[in-house]
């Protein structure tokens, strides 16, 4: 499998809206739902919605990512819930 940084936008796109576990340097791991993967730096943006706390956003820098495992797939609802965090109300919806 290609290194994370060297993958194509199509391959990154497949992770968007999926529940994943990202493994990084120093054996650290991060769980959350993928909002995007920056095509320039290969950084992964994860969102999580803890039940009792405020939503949190984590950015894992592309150079540190060693592996990404899919834990579960997303739904239309999870996608629109994520988008509502990032997009101001008046902006048009991002294309599918």
């Amino acid at each position: 499998m290609l290194k994370w940084r060297d993958r194509s936008p199509q391959q990154w796109q497949e992770f968007v809206n999926q529940e994943v576990c990202v493994t990084a340097h120093d054996q650290q791991s991060f769980e959350g739902r993928v909002f995007t993967v920056d095509p320039v730096s290969a950084s992964v943006v994860l969102v999580s919605f803890p039940e009792t706390k405020r939503p949190s956003v984590k950015v894992i820098l592309g150079h540190a990512v060693t592996d990404v495992q899919i834990l579960g797939s997303g739904t239309k609802e999870s996608e629109s819930r994520m988008k509502s965090l990032f997009l101001p109300d008046r902006t048009q919806v991002l294309s599918a």
């Binding site: 796109q13 920056d38 320039v40 956003v57 990032f86």
Partner: peptide, 28 residues
């Protein structure tokens, strides 16, 4: 098609940076 995907992904990342601006962020 690849360019379209690339721009979608990048736009989302830039919006993340915008959202992060002026917030207390923990750097690991």
């Amino acid at each position: 098609e690849e360019q379209r995907l690339r721009s979608d992904l990048r736009e989302r990342f830039l919006r993340t940076l915008l959202l992060m601006t002026d917030k207390q962020v923990e750097f690991n």
